[in-house]
């Protein structure tokens, strides 16, 4: 499903060169729930961003769903992200000026073949799946952290992607809310067969996934 081969990432400025990832090799099977752990600054989010095609490796190959994506142009990459990938972020990244349902339908806006009516139906379904059917017209500022993250999950799954990339989805939540969010992800993985890659600092959450990969200073240690 996801095949990362010899991926390295170097951030360069005029004076400094920072090695964020070095020769990472990682395969994630279809339907697998993988967690990535490591200390801050070890390159976890960079690796996740490379898998999500929102960052490019300095060297190495990335294959998603059996397709090499290195030669994709910007438009094709955007389309691939839209159709195949779902993102969940630690700080939710909801648009505060849009209602919950409008936030959820965001990925569907970039699918010209989906009508407004279908968008609304799919978004309502996704919200119902995360238990927020009655919060459609609320704004993010009116929700708790856990509810916001559930909205973000609904937004990630509304387009029925094959892969969900979650960057510390429970990082900003208390343990109870974190558990709730984690349970939603587990259900998604088990019931829908969605492949999930999750970056986390929380050992307890990582233990709930199928496999754990550890990074240290940009290198894969386990």
């Amino acid at each position: 499903m996801i095949n990362i081969q010899n991926v390295s990432k170097v951030y360069r400025t005029d004076t400094i060169e920072t090695l964020a990832l070095q020769d990472i090799n990682l395969q994630v099977a279809k339907g697998e729930f993988l967690s990535i752990m490591g200390p801050s600054g070890c390159g976890k989010s960079t690796l996740l961003n490379i898998m999500g095609l929102i960052d490019e490796p300095s060297s190495g190959q990335v294959e998603l769903d059996g397709r090499g994506v290195s030669d994709y142009n910007s438009r094709k990459t955007a389309r691939f992200r839209n159709e195949q990938l779902g993102f969940i972020f630690q700080s939710f990244h909801l648009i505060n000026d849009l209602s919950v349902i409008d936030n959820v339908e965001l990925p569907m806006l970039y699918r010209p073949d989906v009508s407004a009516k279908q968008r609304k139906e799919l978004s309502a379904e996704a919200l119902a799946a995360v238990g927020l059917a009655n919060r459609q017209s609320h704004f993010p500022s009116q929700l708790s952290g856990g509810q916001r993250q559930r909205v973000a999950i609904a937004r990630a799954v509304v387009g029925k992607p094959n892969i969900i990339l979650a960057d510390e989805p429970t990082g900003n939540l208390d343990s109870q809310m974190g558990d709730e969010v984690m349970q939603i992800l587990i259900d998604l993985n088990e019931n829908m067969g969605t492949t999930i890659v999750m970056v986390t600092h929380d050992e307890r959450m990582a233990q709930k996934t199928h496999r754990l990969v550890r990074l240290f200073d940009g290198t894969q240690v386990v």
Binding site: I54, A78, R81, N82, L106, L109
Partner: peptide, 16 residues
């Protein structure tokens, strides 16, 4: 910028 990042991650291309 955050919104731009989210929209790009959700599949918007530059022109959009």
């Amino acid at each position: 910028k955050g919104e731009i990042g989210v929209r790009r991650a959700m599949g918007a291309h530059r022109g959009e």
